[in-house]
Amino acid sequence: MEILNLEGTEDTPKIILDQGNGIFEISGRSLPEDTAEFYEPILDWIKGYSQSPNDKTEFVFKLEYFNTASSKLILDVLSALEDIDGTSVLWYFHEDDEDMEEAGEEFSELVEIPFEFKTY
């Protein structure tokens, strides 16, 4: 799989999807104008990756902020990952950000993927 690497901006998150190095990460702020359009290449990449995935896929979310339209697409990303064996999620939240911790917990209740929580 080709590496998908998008620099973060003030309204879009940084994305690294790198099968060779086993790095799968979404970080920063997500409040794009067109959420579906922004997440489309990410969902496409995961779909392609699911054809011959690594033995283990640890997907990292290290989000500072996301809007409600992004939350729907984050759930779509998680749902796409659900079908890949050996997937786990590492959900980072700032140590005083209860809302981000709770958001991670809610996502973990909506999909069948093991979540690990860490503060930064």
Partner: peptide, 15 residues
């Protein structure tokens, strides 16, 4: 969040 598609206007109905 479980039930909705993103609307034409790009909202998820969650605002």
């Amino acid at each position: 969040i479980k039930g909705t598609e993103i609307s034409e206007k790009g909202g998820a109905g969650l605002g």
